Every structure is written in structure tokens, then in C-alpha cells.
Simulated assay, not measured.
Amino acid sequence: MTTKAVRSLARTWAGELKGRGIRVNVISPGSIETAAMSTVAPEFREQLISAIPLGRLGTSEEIAAAALFFASADASFITGANLVVDGGSGQV
């Protein structure tokens, strides 16, 4: 599913569920350092990293931190949002 589709889904569900006090937010991760990433060719890995403004792959802990933020009281006034956690790739 594309980032636009995921964002649209979150916005639609947020509107549908607002009366029940349910907030809906989504996270769109970029390239993340996982066991599967160790199986890709080094050239492809370097190509991925070169496209990330922060110059590295993300970590699963960084994605978990974004999820914890949405689950926390700090995000109590946020709904229908898409938090892009991609090291800036989508911004350039």
C-alpha cells in the first residue's frame, strides 16, 4: 500500500470512529535495518542509504518509538495523522 493510500485510510477511519473516542494514526517507515536487509546486495544497500538524507537506515527501535508516541498521552489530540519515519527520504 502506498503512503498516500495509508494516509487516506487513517483519515477516513479517524472520521468514522471519532464519535466513539477512537483515534486513528499511522506510521510510514522508510528503509529499516532488519535481518532481511542483510540479504540484499551491498550495492543495493548503499544505493538505499545514499537516498536517505540522514545517511543511514532506520532501526526497529525508532519505529517502535513512533508507535509509543502515538499511544502516549502526548498524542491525545492527534488523529488521522501519518507519521513518516524515513530519515527524510520523502522530503527530498
Rank of each mutant, 00 (worst) to 15 (best):
M1Y: 14
M1C: 04
T2P: 07
T2H: 09
K4D: 07
K4Y: 09
K4E: 04
A5H: 03
A5L: 06
V6R: 08
V6H: 11
V6W: 12
V6I: 13
R7I: 00
R7D: 12
S8F: 06
S8Q: 14
L9R: 08
A10T: 11
A10S: 15
A10G: 12
A10R: 03
R11I: 12
T12F: 14
A14V: 09
G15R: 13
G15Q: 08
G15L: 10
E16F: 01
L17W: 12
K18F: 07
K18W: 06
G19E: 14
G19C: 06
G19V: 00
G19M: 04
R20H: 14
R20N: 12
R20A: 15
R20K: 13
G21C: 05
I22D: 03
R23K: 08
V24S: 11
V26H: 06
P29W: 07
G30R: 10
G30Q: 04
S31P: 08
I32Q: 08
I32G: 08
E33A: 15
A35Q: 12
A35W: 00
A35K: 08
A36E: 15
M37R: 05
M37E: 07
T39I: 01
V40G: 00
V40S: 01
V40E: 00
A41D: 15
P42T: 10
E43Q: 15
F44I: 11
F44E: 12
F44M: 14
R45L: 15
R45I: 03
E46L: 05
E46D: 15
E46I: 01
Q47R: 15
L48G: 01
I49D: 06
I49G: 03
S50K: 13
S50M: 02
S50F: 07
A51I: 01
A51R: 15
L54A: 03
L54C: 04
G55W: 06
L57G: 03
G58H: 09
S60F: 01
E61A: 13
E61L: 05
E62H: 05
E62I: 04
E62A: 04
I63K: 07
I63Y: 05
A65E: 13
A65N: 12
A66T: 02
A66K: 02
A66V: 01
A66Q: 05
A67P: 02
A67E: 06
A67W: 06
L68N: 09
S72A: 03
A73W: 00
A73I: 01
D74Y: 02
D74C: 00
A75V: 00
F77R: 02
I78L: 13
I78G: 02
I78K: 02
T79L: 05
G80V: 07
V84P: 12
V84H: 10
V85L: 08
D86N: 09
G87S: 12
G88W: 04
G88E: 13
G88K: 10
G88H: 08
S89D: 08
Q91H: 09
Q91D: 13
V92I: 14
